[in-house]
Amino acid sequence: MTVLKVQGLSKVYGSEKNSAATWALENINFEVDQGEFLGVMGPSGSGKTTLLNLLASLDKPTTGHIEIAGVDLSKLKDEETAMFRRKNIGFVFQDFNLLYTLSVKENIILPLALDEVRPSDIEKRVSQVAENLGITHILDKRVFEISQGEQQRTAIARAIINRPKVVLADEPTGNLDSKSANGVMKTFSSLNEEYGITILMVTHDPFAASFCKRILFLKDGEIFSELRRSDGRQKFFQQVIDVLSVMGGTFDEPYQLNL
C-alpha cells in the first residue's frame, strides 16, 4: 500500500521569471510504501531540506502534488494542515526540537494531549513506547538533564506515539556523536523492522543511510539515482559510497549562522 506519493514536484525560491530564482527541486516523482525505510541523500544544496519541508507541508510546492495516506496536501486549508500533520506525520529533527519547558515524558505525550486522548490511554502508550526505545528510566527528567542521544530518542518516541502513517526524519544523526548516532539508527531500524513503521529519512551521512532499505539520491534538485538494499548493511554502505563518489559535491553541511 502506498503511504506517500510525490508527483511532478518542483520548488522554485524567488520568482520563476527572475534570473536569480533557484530551482531547489525539479520534477521529483517517487512513492513510499507501507513499512518502507527510505533514505534521501545528496550533497549540500541538493534540495533535501526543501523536499522534507514540502512533505511536512511547512512550505508550499511551486508545482506538483504530494499525497499522504491518500490525501492531497494542497487541498487542505491552513488549520486542517496542522491537524493533518499532527495526526498522520511523525517528525524527527536534526536539532531534536524538544520543548525544554517540559519533562521528557511530557514532550513525548504532547501529540496525544493535543488530540485529547484519554489520560489512561496516554499513560499506557507512553510506557510502551518508552520501553521500546529504552528510555523508561529518563521519563521524569528534564530535557537538559539527558544526553543528546537520549534527546533524539525522546524525539523519536514523540514522533511515533501518535501512530503516524509516516515518520519524516531530517538529518536525525546530524548533531550526534558516532556512538549515539549508531544507537539512534538502530532504533529506527528496529522500529521499522519490528513494528512496520514507515520512515523517510534525509541524511548526508552514508553510515546512517546504510540502515535504510532504499535510497534516493538527489543532485541539483533532481533524482540522480536510486539504490535498493539486497544484502548486508556493510555491502550496502559500500554501494552508497560508490554512488556518492560518482555524484561528487560536498557533503559537509554549511555552518549556519542563526541570528
Binding site: 511547512l58 488549520e79 496542522a82 499532527r86 517528525f91 529533527f93 526540537n97 520543548l99
Partner: peptide, 15 residues
C-alpha cells in the same frame, strides 16, 4: 524558538 518548535510539531497558529 519554542513556539517555532511547537509549530513544527503541528501545533496550529490558533493554538
Amino acid at each position: 524558538s519554542r513556539f517555532a518548535s511547537m509549530k513544527r510539531l503541528g501545533v496550529s497558529w490558533g493554538e
